[in-house]
């Protein structure tokens, strides 16, 4: 029964070793899918390359369904799986700032490490920026602590928020993703760009 570490089936040190191995899988799949290239990542915002949307939504759906099935089979206790807290204002504010960083820098944190690992210097500079940005947040914390902690909504699931069961909600996400994949395939043909 999972999660393994919560059920004390593995030790903390084994958990960290598995974190390293899971990280290898994470980095390998990101790189192999083309997430080590800012050109491919930014492509979604201009239509010429929708790899971000395809990988991101397929992954979210796979993991979402996997967790629901694992729970159904009694393999994992979903009550012990971490659900992110929701602070409405800072989630939107932080997301907006990250979105601006994404279109300017062409990476997100995970993909920048992946790109730096194959020698992309622009990714290395982006990582330098990440450290600076986190440091600025930490040092100026009293200035935005109020905004950071306001509008706490608990740990809601979006399914219960809109009044649907997890399964029905997951099904709707799949339908929405299929629609987006269709648009993505169309856009890649419609707005091609030369590679560099």
């Amino acid at each position: 029964m999972g999660p393994l570490v919560t059920y004390d089936l593995i030790s903390q040190d084994t958990n960290l070793l598995l974190a390293f191995i899971i990280g290898i899988g994470f980095g390998f799949v990101l790189e192999a899918s083309g997430f080590s290239s800012s050109r491919k990542l930014a492509g979604i915002f201009y239509g010429y390359d929708a790899v971000v949307l395809k990988v991101f939504f397929t992954a979210a759906i796979t993991a979402m369904l996997g967790l629901l099935f694992f729970s159904l089979f009694g393999w994992i206790d979903l009550d012990l799986v971490y659900v992110n807290p929701t602070y409405l204002y800072s989630a939107i504010g932080g997301g907006v700032i990250m979105g601006a960083g994404f279109i300017m820098g062409g990476f997100c944190p995970g993909t920048s490490f992946c790109a730096a690992s194959i020698g992309k210097l622009d990714a290395l500079v982006f990582i330098g920026g990440l450290f600076l940005g986190v440091l600025i947040f930490a040092e100026g914390y009293p200035l935005w602590e109020g905004f950071f902690k306001t509008t706490f909504m608990g740990y809601p699931k979006i399914s219960s928020f809109v009044g649907l069961s997890d399964g029905v909600f997951a099904f709707l996400v799949i339908l929405a993703a299929l629609g987006m994949f269709w648009v993505a395939e169309w856009a890649e043909k419609k707005f091609p760009q030369a590679e560099y």
Binding site: S90, G94, I97, M98, I103, I127, G133, L135, W144
Partner: peptide, 18 residues
């Protein structure tokens, strides 16, 4: 890339994750 990194780093803290 540097500007984007700074914004993304800051935003990831404000938004509790990237």
């Amino acid at each position: 890339a540097l500007m984007g990194g700074i914004l993304f780093g800051f935003g990831s803290q404000l938004g509790r994750g990237c």
